[in-house]
Each structure stands twice: as structure tokens, then as C-alpha cells.
């Protein structure tokens, strides 16, 4: 930035560069967001064959809907559990892959991130096969003499089975980000901690984790938001079933808007989801812009 240039004159010169992006952004991001939110105050009226304004009615209906509450609590549990598991797995993997004693380190690092490129629907169908009653996992368990449960058909398991697939999908991205964080650490600082008599655990908690705090917050918030808004996995693996055992808000919103012809109700579910991730997105934006 050259000194002496005022923001207003630079604004005029920046404008031509921004116009195409502003047009696409307004049409494909801002307008749909505002219009989509506004639809939560409308309901489809069959006789009028149009949306009619109903105020907060969709939201008051939500509070009497047990399926909504099931989806809501599922959504929170599934997000917290699968993101926590994703983080622990990825942190362990990144730490191991960063070790200077590891042979073929480059090859292992490359192998760890390949699944990043797999389309989510493909991943979901592989995991659906793995968790079939006569699928790969139960075949393995049978090999050691255990009769495996119906991972996708048992109401107490279905959501957690989907969470495993979700965890697996997030691992490459989180591992890459954490690995980059670990690689940026100052080796002397770590050795100083060891010389000072810090144990392995102390070094991790007091030195390493705080030093890569920013990248941790960024990946955790992104993965929490993506997981909270996740759709493909339950759609392909369980369709929310059995019953509503693995129903999540995005799937319930989709079913209402596009299968039950209640777009206003579906939009209201989306608005609730948006409100619930506001804290996470604010934290993410704050760290990125810092």
C-alpha cells in the first residue's frame, strides 16, 4: 500500500476489478440467503397454489415437532462427537507423520491425504457397504468369532455409524492443516522444553498445542460447521433411519422442502441451523482476519 492514497480514491479504482465478483456474489450468495430466510415466514397454500405469509408460524410449529427435536439433538451430538474423534485421530496421525524418525515420511504423508479427493457420496456408499449386516466389518468380526450388530439398522447405533464415516472424511484435511502447523514449530523451543525437564505430555499440552492454537481453531470451527450442515452421509447411509434414529437437521429440512412440499418449514429448519453455527463462524472469521 503506497502512502498518501485515500481509501475513497482507491475504492473507485478497485471497483472495476470487483464488479464481476460482486454480481455473482449478490446473485448466487446474498440474494439466495436473504430470500431463503424470508421463505421461513411463508407457507405453501394448496388452494391459492402460492406461498402465503404466516409470520412466525413455521417456527412455532417446529417447537411442537418431536422429529425436529430428535434431529436437533442428533445434530449436536453427531457434530461434537465426530469432530472430536476427527481431531484426536488427525492430531495423532499428524504428530506421527511429523516425526523425524519415520522412514518413507513423504510417502506416508501423501497416502494420508489421498482420500481428500474422494467425493462424499462415494465415501458414504463405501461405508454403507462396510457396515452392512453381511458387509466388510461384520465379516472381520466373524473372523474372530464375534457376531456383529446391525450397524445401520440398530436405532441406538445408526447415528454413530454415520459419525464414523463423517470422521473418516474429515481426517485428510485436518491432518494436513495440523501437520503444516507442527512443521512450522520452532525445534529449539521444543528442545528447550525437554531440557527443562518437561515430560512428553507436558510438552504437548503446554508448548505444542498453544503454539498451533490458531490453526486448531480454524480447522475445528470449519469442520464443526461442515459437519453440522452435513447432508450426504446420512442421506446415502440411512436416509435418517431406522425411524428417525439418525435424522439430522439438513436432511429433515430437505425432506420437508422437497418431499413434503413444505418449503417454508424446511427454510425454518435452515434458519435454526444458521443461528446455531453463528458462534462457530464468528470465531473462524475472527481468527482468519487476525
Amino acid at each position: 500500500m503506497r502512502s498518501g492514497q485515500r481509501a475513497s480514491s482507491q475504492g473507485l479504482r478497485a471497483l472495476p476489478f470487483l464488479v464481476p465478483a460482486l454480481i455473482v456474489f449478490s446473485m448466487m450468495n446474498l440474494y439466495p440467503l436473504i430470500h431463503g430466510i424470508s421463505r421461513s415466514f411463508y407457507a405453501y397454500h394448496a388452494r391459492a397454489r402460492a406461498d402465503v405469509f404466516v409470520g412466525w408460524e413455521n417456527f412455532t410449529l417446529l417447537f411442537d415437532d418431536p422429529t425436529f427435536f430428535r434431529a436437533l439433538s442428533n445434530n449436536i451430538l453427531w457434530t461434537v462427537v465426530s469432530v472430536a474423534a476427527m481431531f484426536i485421530f488427525s492430531y495423532a496421525l499428524a504428530t506421527l507423520l511429523n516425526s523425524k524418525y519415520l522412514r518413507f515420511r513423504r510417502a506416508f504423508q501423501a497416502a494420508a491425504i489421498i482420500p481428500w479427493a474422494l467425493p462424499r457420496v462415494v465415501v458414504s456408499l463405501i461405508w454403507r457397504y462396510i457396515f452392512l449386516p453381511d458387509g466388510a466389518l461384520n465379516a472381520m468380526l466373524a473372523g474372530v468369532g464375534i457376531q456383529g450388530p446391525g450397524w445401520l439398522t440398530d436405532p441406538s447405533l445408526a447415528l454413530w455409524t454415520c459419525a464414523v464415516a463423517n470422521m473418516w472424511i474429515g481426517v485428510p484435511f485436518v491432518t494436513v492443516m495440523l501437520l503444516a502447523g507442527l512443521q512450522s514449530l520452532d525445534g529449539e523451543m521444543l528442545e528447550a522444553a525437554v531440557v527443562d525437564g518437561a515430560s512428553y505430555f507436558q510438552t504437548q499440552v503446554r508448548v505444542i498445542l498453544p503454539s498451533i492454537r490458531r490453526v486448531i481453531i480454524i480447522v475445528l470451527m470449519l469442520e464443526a460447521i461442515w459437519t453440522f450442515n452435513g447432508f450426504e452421509i446420512v442421506f446415502v447411509m440411512t436416509q435418517g433411519g431406522p425411524g428417525n434414529a439418525s435424522m439430522l437437521l439438513p436432511l429433515y429440512g430437505y425432506l420437508n422442502a422437497f418431499m413434503y412440499y413444505q418449503p417454508g418449514y424446511g427454510a425454518a429448519i435452515g434458519v435454526v441451523s444458521l443461528v446455531l453455527v453463528l458462534g462457530a463462524i464468528a470465531l473462524y472469521i475472527r481468527e482468519v482476519l487476525k
Binding site: F25, P32, N229, Y254, L274, V277, I281, Y284
Partner: peptide
């Protein structure tokens, strides 16, 4: 910049309904 980053949080169902109108 804030708006660009905030799009990560826009729920698919809201965006799909809005985009469908477009």
C-alpha cells in the same frame, strides 16, 4: 472479506431454496 468467509456457514437448505427461485 467477512461476508466471503461467512458463506461457509450458510445452510444448504436455505441456499437451495433461494437459488431455486433464481
Amino acid at each position: 472479506s467477512t461476508l466471503l468467509l461467512a458463506t461457509q456457514a450458510f445452510p444448504g437448505i436455505i441456499m437451495a431454496l433461494g437459488l431455486l427461485t433464481v
